[in-house]
Design a protein around this nucleic acid. Structure first.
Length: 645
RNA sequence: GCCAGCGUAGCUCAGUUGGUAGAGCAGCUGAUUCGUAAUCAGCAGGUCAGGAGUUCGAAUCUCCUCGCUGGCUCCA
């Protein structure tokens, strides 16, 4: 028989392995880099015999996305072998490939320590040096169960039970056998670059009712250079950490005395978020929203009626006023519905869009708090759109456009998810189906690609989530659009139709930035603290060479401020280099230097934070430059928001 | 909440086997009047997160509380 490999066709003898066939078809160099082969839709081990009827095989290189997965997963096997050798009593569970490497979860009488990691890594090095081949064999369920029972691997037996079919595949390398569907690299020597990074606890089966296992994480790449690059990338990402930049740039802080998860905004941080919030108010007014404001505390009965008390109580804070129980709001929807209910509504009034920069409190578990990205008090740019069911589609598409405008303004790349009905939820099946379909149709209408996230919706309705990435590529949910038929029913929202009858409106919950705090955190990491000029707390700093230039600096700063530019002077008795360095570290967009020459010509010398020097410029010209810079991102994004005026 | 690791001056970090703490930057004072990422000198600054215990003696060992970090579960 003949098999095609790329452009070559090679003859295959009976009993030849995939690897042998590829070796014939490829150059030595290309073959050396091959870890598995693609056969149809599946990946296949190089040691496998060529399947009957096989027409084509594609080599998969170690540094391809698929190949990397194989390398990483094989590294997990090697790590498990090393752990079993050093700690024979440890039980293995599962060990998949992940984004930059792999992990493996172990059940052991004690957690592993950083010193253990060093020993495990050394043992892995020995296993790799020995270059043991990965053997694959097919076994019946009974046979496999006997193997793991004998080894005392209780968790593997449980994994085995969950696998469908009569047979399973077992992989053995060196002295270690694992239940695995494969594929793997041909032998342990193919692992060129891996490093165990940290240990963490992880619940068995991801269930917090079940035992906690010890997870060992490792990074793995096709070659040492790629691994080195990744470790360097981690170091660089640390410099972009918003918590570090928040301190460096004096934007915000946390205080042990104030409490966990409570942000304290310093002048510069508070200024940035105020500008962001002003921008949002204007954008919302432009798009037909009404700005509203509700109370921070609402009576407990109201939360019972909404279903929050039943479904969300453990995340809420309660207090008492004159023997009446109150709940601190974790969401803003209730008062918005009360506004709707404050009078009769006609079909002509709809849609009604209520917007609130609402401060909410949520009792997040202590272990999940994370800088600005996960806090206990935060401000949502929240809106509730109450509309007729026939208006839903159009409204959802308008929101998606809004999100695209704003997220695009900052240059974020984003991912969209559609989250469907969770186990713990309220409302009828019909309502859920209607709501889910509305979201799907809007996504398709807006041409937004999305991933399905089954069972991840809010308890009252399905949602579209938009996720942004932080410095370490972790994804954080920011914008979300939730479709809700349940709360309008619970609160008996009504409108009078053209037919004179009373009808039930639908409700959309949505945020654009999500939480101002979280968005600021992601934005700080995205920009490394170098905010776009329109958001920069200080847009221009005037730097004098000596005190002889102070008076002119004062004239210049007054002119800039009058034009609405956030400018300040640095008149300190320091060398120019020192002042430049400080302004540079504060990421101030415009440094305006004044010395003898500038004073003579009533001008300034312009330095940008990029290091670029624009030379001598007229003050008027510089003001235009800065104002233009403020508006540039909006013009690019097709928005006509005019921040400076 | 769970698992692990941490908490030393405003910030970044030293601190050997237990013998009551140091550096750089920032701050203050003085000198210097200087052209695009750090001028020099001096001074001051800490109940070593908080509490309890072991010990003749604790930043260091043990326990508890608070907080932080990385994961897990959960979530904007």
């Amino acid at each position: 028989m003949h098999v095609r490999v790329g452009e070559n066709t090679v003859e295959v003898q009976a009993g030849e392995s995939v690897g042998q066939v590829l070796a014939k078809a490829l150059s030595g160099k290309a073959y050396k880099n091959t870890v598995v082969a693609r056969y149809g839709d599946a990946l296949i081990d190089l040691s496998s015999p060529v399947p009957a009827g096989c027409e084509a095989l594609t080599p998969v290189a170690a540094d391809s996305p698929e190949g990397l997965d194989v390398v990483r997963h094989s590294a997990a096997h090697v790590m498990a072998e090393a752990v079993k050798k050093l700690f024979p009593k440890a039980q293995v569970t599962i060990g998949p490939a992940i984004e930059h490497g792999f992990y493996y979860d172990f059940a052991f009488e004690r957690p592993f320590t950083p010193e253990d990691l060093v020993a495990i890594q050394a043992e892995m090095d020995r296993i790799v040096a020995a270059n043991h081949p990965f053997f694959c064999r097919t076994a019946s369920r009974e046979e496999a169960a006997a193997v793991f029972d004998k080894m005392g691997e209780q968790y593997k037996l449980e994994v085995l039970e969950a696998i469908p079919g009569d047979t399973v595949t077992l992989y053995t390398q060196g002295g270690f056998t694992d239940l695995c569907r494969g594929p793997h690299v041909p032998s342990t020597g193919f692992l060129k670059a891996y490093k165990l990074t940290h240990v963490a606890g992880a619940y068995w089966r991801g269930d917090d009712k079940r035992p906690m296992l010890t997870r060992i994480y490792g990074a793995a790449f096709a070659d040492a250079n790629a691994l080195k690059k990744y470790l360097h990338h981690l170091e660089e990402a640390k410099k972009r950490d918003h918590r570090r930049l928040g301190t460096q740039l004096d934007l915000f802080s946390f205080s042990e005395e104030a409490g966990a998860g409570m942000v304290i905004w310093h002048p510069k941080g508070a200024l940035v978020r105020t500008i962001l919030e002003d921008f949002e108010r204007k954008e919302h007014l432009k798009r037909g929203y009404h700005i509203v404001q509700g109370p921070q505390l609402l009576k407990r009965e109201l939360w019972e009626r909404s279903g929050h008390y039943e479904n969300y109580r453990e995340n809420m804070y309660f207090t008492e006023i004159d023997e009446q129980a109150y709940g601190v709001k974790p969401m803003n929807c209730l008062s918005h519905m009360l506004i709707y209910k404050s009078r009769m509504r006609s079909y002509r009034d709809l849609p009604l869009r209520y917007f609130e920069l609402g401060v909410v409190h949520r009792h997040e578990k202590s272990g999940v708090l994370h800088g600005l990205l996960r806090v206990r008090q935060f401000t949502q740019d929240d809106a509730h759109i109450i509309c007729r069911p026939d208006q839903l589609q159009e409204e959802i598409i308008a929101i998606i456009d809004f999100v695209r405008d704003v997220v695009g303004l900052f240059g974020f790349e984003f991912e969209a998810n559609l989250s469907t009905r969770p186990e713990k939820s309220i409302g009828s099946d019909e309502a859920w189906e209607l709501a889910t379909n509305a979201l799907i149709q809007a996504l398709e209408g807006a041409g937004l690609p999305y991933q399905l996230n089954e069972g991840d919706g809010a308890f009252y309705g399905p949602k579209i989530d938009i996720k942004l990435k932080d410095a370490l590529d972790r994804r954080w949910q920011c914008a979300t659009i939730q479709c809700d038929f349940t709360l309008p029913e619970r609160f008996d929202l009504m409108y009078t139709g053209a037919d004179g009858e009373r009808h039930r409106p639908a409700m959309l919950h949505r945020v654009i930035l999500g939480a101002v705090e979280r968005f600021m955190g992601v934005l700080i990491e995205h920009t490394t603290g170098a905010f776009p000029t329109w958001l920069a707390p200080v847009q221009a700093r005037i730097l004098t060479v000596t005190e002889a230039h102070d008076a002119h600096a004062q004239v210049v700063v007054d002119r800039l401020r009058n034009a609405g530019i956030r400018a300040e002077t640095d008149l300190r008795n320091e060398k120019l280099g020192y002042k430049v360095r400080e302004a540079q570290m504060e990421k101030i967009p415009y440094m305006l230097v004044i010395g003898d020459q500038e004073m003579e010509q009533r001008a300034v010398n312009v330095r940008l934070r990029s290091g670029e020097n624009l030379g001598l410029k007229d003050v008027e010209e510089v003001m235009d430059l800065i104002l233009e810079d403020c508006q540039a991102p909006f013009k690019r994004g097709g928005m006509r928001y005019n921040f400076c005026q």
